[in-house]
Amino acid sequence: MNAPAIAPALTAQDFKSDYKPVWCPGCGDYTVLASITRALAALQLRPEKVAVVSGIGCSSRIPAYTTCYGFHGVHGRALAAATGLKVARPDLTVLVAGGDGDGYSIGGNHFLHACRRNIDLTDIVMDNHVYGMTKGQPSPTTEPDWKSKLSPAGTGLREFHPLVIALAAGANFIARAFSGDPSGTAAVIGEAIRHPGFSFVEVLSPCVTFRPEQRAWKEAVHPASVAATDDPARAARRLMTDDGFNTGVLYKGTRPAYSAAAGKTTLHPADLEKDFAL
């Protein structure tokens, strides 16, 4: 009997590097890594045609765990670096990965403008509502009453709502996934990569070390009961009213992706000198 399908050139394993993650066993980020590699294999991309860009934080360690080209930059600036890379090299598939502190706090401004610019990037934020690498401080998505050494009485601040902000700022694809659902996460990431423009995937990814209670997220998450909408107004209402555990693709916009005004003409710099000649 013949094989039921043509063998893929590459499997998920081919996207995994031999450098082993330093994440705590139990961390949701392992699933996200597995989901990314699975999605890239399913999309039949080549590792050298994919770049994974990150900032600083536990989840931002992800580029080196793949066999893709990686860029592990400074805290909060992954989207900026990815923007430069994608505009300079539109032939590449560029993924941005990081955590809630990196993406929403120190990198908050870049998040807004990446959504607005709508460059063809996929931004995967592994949200565990805590700064893990610095040993457990509240992040923008931390609940107001969560107590820590830095905020013994809780922050008293309402949580940042990344999906609503992404929508308002102009993201073209908005999804929520849960790292306890590797299948769903892989599917969402694959779809995000395929969708043109800026695709934002928020992955609820528990921190078993500083937020062990997040293990209970697996009881709380539920798939979205309706299909993704392309109507921003409808999406806004849904996102504003959901319980934060609604997973799946929630918004798929139709805005055309940013295309840089790359010069088609290729004059030589010497040709510009005549502007200065007397």
Binding site: M1, A3, P4, A5, I6, A7, P8, T11, A12, C24, P25, G26, C27, G28, Y30, T31, A34, R38, A39, A41, A42, S179, G180, D181, P182, S183, G184, A186, A187, G190, P206, V208, R215, K218
Partner: peptide, 28 residues
């Protein structure tokens, strides 16, 4: 009699494939 492995699905219909355990269940 397959010479090459069949292509893996991108995702299973269920959250976790039937014979694996989620990463979250581990402890160092």
């Amino acid at each position: 009699g397959w010479k090459q492995p069949p292509r893996a699905p991108l995702a299973w219909d269920e959250a976790e494939p039937p014979e694996t355990t989620a990463h979250t269940e581990l402890h160092y």
